[in-house]
Design a protein around this nucleic acid. Structure first.
Lengths: 119, 119
DNA sequence: CCTTGACATCGATCTCTGTCAATATCGATG
DNA sequence: CATCGATATTGACAGAGATCGATGTCAAGG
């Protein structure tokens, strides 16, 4: 059996419905999927995700990410937290540095939900 | 030759980049793609888009859409305008009624950008 | 023309979000 | 242990967004 709705993260929710243009989306499903899109719907976070995902070995240190933006360090940290909280990025602390890694399945599920291929 | 950046809508912009986890997204591309995701990042608009897309003949009258929500008519009209302004919905007025229609290519391009298949 | 019905626009309000400065945490190093 | 450097957290503030009531527009019927 699957997780209860209460403990289901946005990441889990995005893999639970047929393509958006095939069947009407339920109110509860929409409420769980929207936060994932909201996390993506910011230029800085889009670029952060892209930087991490296209980085060598699929992971990137925070120290590599800040230089690409004209933003303060807390602001970058905040955006990374948003992406992590919603389940798009994994975080791992190694020594003094923190490394982030994209969870590819989440983006694939989201693409299937929007594009309508498969499932 | 392609349109200039100034007259390019979010809809055009989403079809102009390699998958997000392959190459780092440029600041200008991110700035044009984010509004499209922002338009999607609302539970009501997600359901509106899904209702229109899964409706018979791929189009739906506004009069069919409002009943599914516990929201005022101006609010529904506002959300439809957001989806239309960003290029996700086409609008056509026939007599007294207004019909909306999903533009499937936009969702397909967005799915390719996120999911990384093709291109 | 006057009314009615479908939808859009406007103005106000209330909440949410992006940003930064200041501060905290935490591991490494002298 | 005192310090330093890398990230995270907190608090504050300005701007953006969601919602609604009131009003505008426009076509169809009487």
């Amino acid at each position: 059996m699957s997780k209860s709705a209460l403990e289901m993260t946005p990441v889990d929710a995005v893999a639970c419905c047929s393509p958006i243009v095939r069947d009407p989306l339920g109110a509860d499903d929409a409420a769980r999927i929207a936060p994932l899109l909201k996390a993506l719907a910011d230029p800085v976070r889009l670029r952060l995700l892209s930087l991490v995902g296209s980085h060598t070995d699929g992971e990137a240190c925070v120290c590599d990410l800040g230089d690409a933006f004209d933003l303060s360090q807390p602001t970058i940290s905040h955006h990374l937290k948003v992406l992590h909280d919603v389940g798009l990025l994994d975080r791992e602390k190694r020594g003094v540095w923190v490394y982030y890694r994209v969870r590819p399945q989440v983006l694939a599920d989201l693409a299937a939900l929007l594009g309508g291929v498969g499932r």
